[in-house]
Design a protein around this nucleic acid. Sequence first.
DNA 1: CTGAAAGCGCTTACAG
DNA 2: CTGAAAGCGCTTACAG
Lengths: 344, 344
Amino acid sequence: MPRAKGSRLTVKDLARDLGMSVSTVSRAFYPDAAIAEVTRQTVLKRASEIGYRPNPFAKSLITKKTQIVGMVVSDLTNPFYPEVMTRLTSLLQKQGMNVMLASAEHPDGIDEAVDLLLMYQPDLMIVLATNLKSHARERCEAAGAPVIFFNRLSADGLGFGVSCDNIKGGMNAANHLVDLGHRELLYVSAFPDASTNIERRQGFCDQAVARGLNPPQVYEAGWFTYEAGYEAGLAVKDLPRRPDGVLCANDIVAIGFIEGVQEGIGLKVPKDMSVIGYDDIAMAAWPSHRLTTIAQPLEEMMDATVRLARDLASSIGHEQHILHIPPGPLVERSTVADRRKHHD
Amino acid sequence: MPRAKGSRLTVKDLARDLGMSVSTVSRAFYPDAAIAEVTRQTVLKRASEIGYRPNPFAKSLITKKTQIVGMVVSDLTNPFYPEVMTRLTSLLQKQGMNVMLASAEHPDGIDEAVDLLLMYQPDLMIVLATNLKSHARERCEAAGAPVIFFNRLSADGLGFGVSCDNIKGGMNAANHLVDLGHRELLYVSAFPDASTNIERRQGFCDQAVARGLNPPQVYEAGWFTYEAGYEAGLAVKDLPRRPDGVLCANDIVAIGFIEGVQEGIGLKVPKDMSVIGYDDIAMAAWPSHRLTTIAQPLEEMMDATVRLARDLASSIGHEQHILHIPPGPLVERSTVADRRKHHD
DNA sequence: CTGAAAGCGCTTACAG
DNA sequence: CTGAAAGCGCTTACAG
């Protein structure tokens, strides 16, 4: 028997309806509570009939658990993140957690976004944002909320992280190019303070040298965007040496880069220059691009994140650590050529 | 003087610290409360010093306002939505509202996502999702939360909506093509239950007829995705009549369509066929695509949404209505040809 | 296994 | 303008 129009049903309503005490009714919603199974079933049945659900706010006041995970995003122009954000949200919801979102338009706004979310005392924060030098970790820790950095490391290497092994990924790209006879490499760098960018570059450059090449040239595109990649492509003509193989910091940069190289200075990919991306976003497979790229092991990364989230939210102790998941495979498509026949 | 490690500061702590009553302290946070201005300043100053902020959950228990807006998304593969979602989130945050996110992987999951959000008794729901035949509006209304449909209409035409005038947009596209001498039009339709799709189609087809052409052919691509557009492009060869001008349901469909037409059946855009998109997403301007498109008046739409959100959240009465904002301009790029010279 | 009572952190009539 | 008290909707020792 629903009551006044606007207001939700409360435990009291349900208790009165059932002729039980509020304590008993409340217990029915907790699997571990001491309550007769038959009582629980009666309560649950009636609750769903009349549409009663415990008010999560009142509940959190007692339990000190909010079931809320705060999610901070900023790197919006990269299609990788919307997908992660949205799929992670679905997965977390299936675990009974709800996502509160804060978006920072600029990498420097991350700390602000974090503070906003912290007001709601989330059980956990997940940071999908770029900026290595934010103070997100300290702030969350001070507020008692553990943080997971997804696809990023925190500035100090502390906190929880889920990341693919970007150094290894960079190495794989270098090996692939060297194996196919490339001799002069280039790394197109994106946001300089992103750990992904730094690690991919390091793996790529070190491995090139280890394989006997000159240290790769590095072009600082500055951002993880199509536009930055395009500018980098245009700028290739001003490089001291013309590269024959390049790794871009991620797919969206690579797609812009290829366009810049082809339209701006008339070089052909992969005939004149091979290009590899990183992420394997949906767009990389489009006929328009057919980008060869290092895949991210997205499923594994998300599963690991959700598992970690579940544990942390229920206060299961974990040493802070970074989960390094092996990089996904190098997906061969149409932007890398075999140059071995051209060399001796 | 902060207290025990884990726990947040409370009004009591601040009151004790200041030698005031909790009532007085509490009042300092409400602009309309009866409190001496000097007292308020003292409280606010000390609060920010020791880092006290009222617990929003406890607060909402009394005020029945949560400052939460629930946002439902589903149309994720369309880059239009991540951008809207994220920018809307920023704008709402500036108004003191917080966004709780639920994502439905499938259009049919929208109602489920809505229920989940409703648990948190949001002051307002915003639906960014596709499906015209969900019961989102009824459910939200039953739960006492007003709904704004962004870029969509509800199935029954009720509820609040912010939408560009898609019929007008479709007409503009038809006029542009007819003006440039196109004679045989095609509409590439996406999700059949999306109001945007239906309205754009209607405006386009009706106006073509009004201008003396045959009714445009319609190809049902089924989804707002690149892949659906690509398939549609491939399918052009099976059409009874070869179109010389086409409007796609949105940009991402258009980009896929063009690729399909060019790669699959060797026609050139715009030489053999002109194509217009809808939305003017960032990608449309990329050198890879240079898509001619009907822009959405995004800024106006978001501003209108935020204004409406503010009013509704603070219970300012409004008649339910759809805000129809005039469509943005037709942005001419490189996918429409002038065919007037070929006709007499 | 069940119920009466206390209390989570707040706000808001009600007196003064 | 200020404070003491009641109460928002819940959970959880504490008795029984």
